[in-house]
Amino acid sequence: MDLSAINPALLIASLMVAATPLLFAAIGELVVEKSGVLNLGVEGMMIVGAVAGFATAVETGSPLLGFVAAAGAGATLSVLFAILTQYAQANQVASGLSLTLFGLGMSALLGQSYVGVKPPQMQKIDLPVLSDLPVVGPILFGHDPMLYLAIALIAAVWAVIKFSRIGLVLRAVGENHDAAHALGYKVVRIRILAILFGGACAGLGGAYISLIRVPQWTEGMTAGIRWIALALVVFASWKPWRVLLGAYLFGGVTVVQLNLQAAGVAIPVEYLAMSPYLITILVLVILSADKSSAPAALGRNFHAAR
């Protein structure tokens, strides 16, 4: 056992990368849920984003365009969900799960010719002096632009929800759609916009996996993320900054357990492998004292005429 082999600065830097896809997907889902809609199709939108981003980046040679396409593809898929739940009044849980099934299949069909292809690399932001600083350098300044975008997105969502009128309307719709409707807000339109935003974010998260974190295209490559993004929103009690905390905690424990394995720590591997999930539960129990709860209208469909 040799714990000195673990470099904390590098560890933190890599957990930030590990957590970024989760950040994108979870912050999008948070906005969707704030508006009172539960979209369990996150994985479907992620993987479609992953393949669309990958294909676009390969064809155009530009990872940036890939991310744009991924956001577009995620949002496009979420339109299906919006139609089902907002117009056809379909059950949200079942619609979301069906969306995941559909997205997994669709992405595999679209991605057939991209297996084994190497995507263009996204340049890291290289700040001459700052990136070379010990400890702080790799943690704060050595990453790709998308990672910073994810954090900026968290900050933006937080600010918008907390301070702006849009945020107020969003929360009103999510807490009590009938009252919001009575006040003259377009409940359905607001929810659709939230769903589209969630889809775009999930798409970005997917593309982050296929273009930066892994990077390759394989069918079902979001396997490890599956439900974690959804769980994070619950974990965060619908608060943006706690999404960041949760994603870094989860990503952190995952990376730490691999580090401990590599360092030869005498803890049975299967328990190490369970640790991210157990620690997440434990932290949630500790945080349970915080009684802020889900948006009151979460998962309920709205029909204006009732």
Partner: peptide
């Protein structure tokens, strides 16, 4: 047929089942 095509087909079936449920209540 690739299994992904079947998955898409299943997804469609679920979408339509859910969407047409509308006619029961509306």
């Amino acid at each position: 047929l690739p299994s992904s095509a079947i998955q898409v087909f299943q997804g469609m079936l679920l979408f339509f089942l859910l969407a047409f449920d509308l006619l029961t209540n509306f």
